[in-house]
Structure formats: C-alpha cells, structure tokens
Design a protein around this nucleic acid. Sequence first.
DNA 1: TTCGTCACG
DNA 2: ACGTACGTGACGAAT
Length: 732
Amino acid sequence: MSINVIDATNFIKDAFYAMPVFSDENGNNISGVYGALYKLKSMLSENEEALFAFSFERDNESEYTPAVVDQTEKFAEILKGAEIPGLLDVSNGESASPELIAYLEGELLKLSPTGKVSVVPKFELNISVTSDLGEVEEIFKKAHEYGTGAIDNYIGYFLMREREADKSLGKKDTFGIALCYGEKNVIYIPLENFITESYIGNKLSELSKDCSLATFDIKDGYDLFMPFEISERTTGYDKEDTGYLTSPKCFDTLIGAYLCNPIKNDYSVEDISKEYLKIPFEKRNDIFGKSGIKEADAGKIADYACKAAYICKACAPLIREKLSKTGMENLFYNIEMPLSYILFAMEKEGIIAKKDELKAYSDKLAVRISELEKVIYEAAGCEFNINSPKQLGEVLFEKLGLPAEKKTKSGYSTAADVLEKLAPDNKIVADILEYRGLAKLKSTYADGLAAYIAGDGRIHTSFNQTITATGRISSTEPNLQNIPMRTEEGRLIRKVFVPKEGYVFADADYSQIELRILAHMSEDKGLIDAYHEGKDIHRITASKVFHVPFEDVTPLQRRNAKAVNFGIVYGISSFGLSQDLSISRSEAKEYMDKYFETYPGVKEYQDKVIASAKADGVSDTLFGRKRPIPELKASNYNLRQFGERVAMNAPIQGTAADIMKIAMINVFFRIKRENLKSRLILQIHDELVIETAPDEKDTVTEILTKEMENAADLSVPMEVDCHIGNDWYESK
DNA sequence: TTCGTCACG
DNA sequence: ACGTACGTGACGAAT
C-alpha cells in the first residue's frame, strides 16, 4: 500500500489549467476546485488501496495566481468538511470509504447544482501579430472597408499602454494596438520601427471619419489621436442634434457600462467581458503582475490586447442597445462622450502650483505643530501618537477621564464634533483640535500637493468620469476638488494656485443649483416663485416657515432655514437635521413639518420619487441618467431608509451634474470656436475655473456666465457668479 | 486592507 | 429598538 502525498496547490493549479473553463451559477471560474475534486474522486474509485495526504503548505505564494490560491482554500474547506475519520488514511487497510466518495460527489453537485458543469464560452479568436508596414497598411485598409457603411460594424481597438513608473507623472508607454473587425480575426500590432504612436494616431483619426470605433477608456488614448467627431464639433451640446443616431461615433465601452450601471466598483475590461459576453477573462494584473508589461512575454501581451479589442467590438452593440432601451443614448453620445475629451484636455492643461510657497507653508505649519505637540504631551503627562485615534482615545477618556461618547466599532470616537463639546473646558482638547487641523493641512495639502507638481510646474489631476453613483465627476492624484475653503487658514492654500504669466483666473460657480433643481423638479409654486423674486432664498424660506416679515428674519432663523434647505436636498431625516443644528429631534421634526407646510409640492415630489424608485428600482435625472437603488428592497430597515434618502437626493445631485457637464461642453467648444487662448482647467461640481488670457477677461466672463446659465431650461433662473483673480484665493 | 478622520460640493 | 443626513478622495494608524 502506498501513501501519496500531494501538494494541494499544485494539484489545484494543474486542474485549473487542464480543465476547460467551468463556472458556477454566478459565473465564477471554478475549474480548479471542480477539476481537483473530480480527479480525487476518480483516483479513490479506481485505486481503492491508495492513501492520499494533502499538503497545503506553499513555499512561494507569488508563484500562484489569486484564483488558484482561492480555490485551494476552498478545496481545503471541502476536505475538512468531509468529517470522515482519516481522509489521510482512506483505505485504513480497507478500501476507500464509499462515504467519502459519496461526499465528494455531493460537493461536486453543490458546485454545479444542475449536476452538469456549465461550460462557459471561451474566446475563439484568430490572433495574429505584425509590425510590418505593408501588412499594417493592408489591415487598416481592410478595417476601413469593413467599418464603412453599417453603423453596427464596430471596429474594436485596444491600446496596450502603461503609465511609466518613474518618469514625470502622466507619461505613458505604448506597447501596441490590437484591432478587431469582422468576426473572429484580431491583429496585434506592436509599436516598432515604422509603427509609431503618431502613425497609429493618424490611422485611427482616418478611421474615425467613416467608421464606428469601439474602445475601452477612450480618454487614455486622446494624446494619440483626436476623433473626427471631436475635431469637427464646434456647436457644443445641441438639444436638437440627433446626428448621433445615424452618423458613426466613437464608442467607449467603459463609459457605456458605467452609464448602464453606475453603482458598481469594477468596470475593468475583464468585468465587462463577464457581464456582457459571459466570457471570463483573467485580470490584467494577474497576467502582467507587478513587473509590468515591459517585462511580460510578447505572446501574453498580444493575447491580452486582442481579447480586449474583441470585447470592445462585441460589447459595443450590446451596451448601445441597453443605452437605447433605457433612454440614455443622448446622455451617452451628446454629453458623456464629448465630455471625455474635455476632461482629457483639462488634465493635460493642469494648473500651476508654486512649489516654494507650498514648502514655506509646510515649514510654517511644522513649527506650530511641534509647539502643540509639546503642550499636548505635557498636559497629557505622556508622549503618544496624537494622530492615532486609538491612542488619543485612551489618553483622553481613560488617562484623563474625560466623559466619553463611545461611538466607533473599535473604541472611543475622537471625531471633531465630539472633541468640540469638550474643548471649551479642556485646553488639551482645544489644542488637539488645532493640531489635527494643522496636521491635515500639512500632510494632505502642503506636502501632499507638492509631491504632484510635475516637471512643467503644474499639477495634472485625473478627472474620473466613471466613479460616482450620481453622475458627478471625481478628481484624484491629487484631488483638486477638496482644496480647503471653509476656514481662512486652510483657504490660504489656494494662493499657491496661480495662472500662467500675465494670465488671470476666471472662476464661475452656480448659486444653489441643487435647490433650484429641486424647485424645478418638484414644481412647487412657492419655491419657484421664491426664486423668481431673486432675493436671498434662505431668508425667504425662513420668512415663510416662521411667519415673519422678510426684513425681520433673525440670523438664527435664516441659519435654520438654510440647514433645512440643505437637508431637503440630502433626503431629510429629523435625526440628521437635529445633529446638524445641535437641536433635539422633535425640534428638527417641527422645522421639517413647517417646511413641508410652506412648500407642499416638495413633499409630494419626494413621496413621488420614492414611490417611483421603489416601483422600478432606479431613480432618474432630468436628462435620463439612472441610478439603481437596490437598497429599497432590503429587509434591513436602515438600509431601506438609506435607499429612500438616495431616491430623494440622486435625481437632484445627478441633474446638477448633467447640467454642469452640458455647460462644460458649451464653454469648451465656444472657446475652441472663437480661437481663444484661455483654457478650462478645473471643475469642482458647481464651479468652473478658466485660465484666462488678459485680453479675454470679458469674453471669458461672458462665456462662463451665459453658457452656465443657459445649459438647461428650468422653471427657475440659474444664477452664476463669476470672479476674476490673480490666484485661486482671489478668484473664488 | 480597513478604519477613523476630515477636506470639498 | 435601532441608527441615519447626499456625493466624493487622501492621509496615518492599525490590522
């Protein structure tokens, strides 16, 4: 009798790669664990005298892909679950236990409930590779023939690019391009010799004149080529324009997939493949790992790029169909696609940040921070890490015995609203609050921003178009949408953001756009009239809610009315309002009731959008953007409540995002059409910043004001404030 | 990676 | 009886 010691991870790995792709009902690839169980069962059945022992040790973790490691763990769980004495001595001098074999059969069935393994479709592509100029010319010629004519003859392309690791930020390495047209043929063209970035760029430009191009993350390729529809566009956003229905356009599967479902976390090309084609596709990082594409095998690069290009080609019509069915084609073709180019242009433009001044500001902060540190340690009677909420909580609430509001999972809450209550009576707490504020300014802003200044002296943020659930854009690396504003000391940071020599900033922002959108969407007469009066909206609301003449509204009344206005937009709850105003829940409830009495249309509207979202599971903006709200069907009460607040807020925040995007398109293309030197450089949700040539100040002010005010026709005016300044502190 | 905190609209 | 304002991203600490 022999004892077979088997390395479990290798056993799984062999199965994983030997088996066809099998998936469970969720579409997860379970080839490894399924194949391993099947093989084990066979071995036991065939070789009744054998004895198997599995070793789950792994010497070199990085040798295995995450999928193999996952499935090995799953395999271990299943074996543990056998509860048959001695899987390790199966025969025990006897034959393999029938119970064990039955158990393994049961587990196989569990993995595949139908009793059959669902065989997932695989890519069946004819992949070829060439950099031969003559061949490449021929390929683009054929692609052009294929793509000319039928709009659904998408040409899929995928640029194999990677951000350079060390060189100045934003630079990208291009390794090649995969091109897919016709059914199954995909060609990978590595960039070498005559095949350069500009060669590929020209070819794509030409194709974009006559053909439908489908890709993934189109913004990533705009430095190679400007699509024809962008270079030809001068009219901005045109409500009457239905040209997109017949004329070929660029199609970004990433943006399309995002619009179809904006609440996902993952919009990788792998994820799109799984969702729309049901074909699993190994993740890019799992294939190329941390060493990057540069080190990767040429065959793997071609294989990956070709599959990605095919996915773009195959998914484009499916996603387009979905966009059409959900009424989002206009949003996609006339707003999001042109916007992607504008975001690219803004990123490329960047904004000057003065490095020396950031350094000086940082040094100044450091002095005060170390002073505070000393004082805090003395008052505490010990040294500790003030930045650690855990250590801070122990010092304040245990060592010093201050009254604690236990809040977080892991211990005492030391959040600002808690500390602020203690600060008046405890100097150490006031010092800690100051320390916190300065530490934040130093780490995130002074030092943080300095690290992003590129070789041209400018910061090039990334504007992300496919992140938020509501349709807003976001900004990362660095985030330029959360530069301090509310406190003077923080606001000073904005002085380091300056226009280029001789230029000025023009900064325009919408006045209470979300509340105006609420007025429009709710059709509440009182609120609409209030906006037509053109006076301070919070004061008007206070006057109506508290039944006092407009002139007699007290500052407190105005403040309360303003908080309620905000609360309404967020999807109000009496608790939230009470927290914000530091009042009791019942008082907050009273304010809300009075507000709804004043503006009954708002209440009706909120009930209506909740009912509608409950009925079809999504909320809608004025421009048809959808946000699914699965929380409304949750069994958990709090989650359902959250869903209701989202149903109230998403149409408003989302419509504001839509309107701002339209404004950006109109501003951008007017600047282009009028051949101005000024450039759009920032968007902060309801605010646009333009680096403005001195002789274009008035023109740009007019463009910003008019294009933003007229981006949509609402039943209330949209008001825009525009300021000129020599830095962002001045212009805001 | 996750958490707590805090910057913005 | 429970635990909440909506939407983001970055940092330092702890895991």
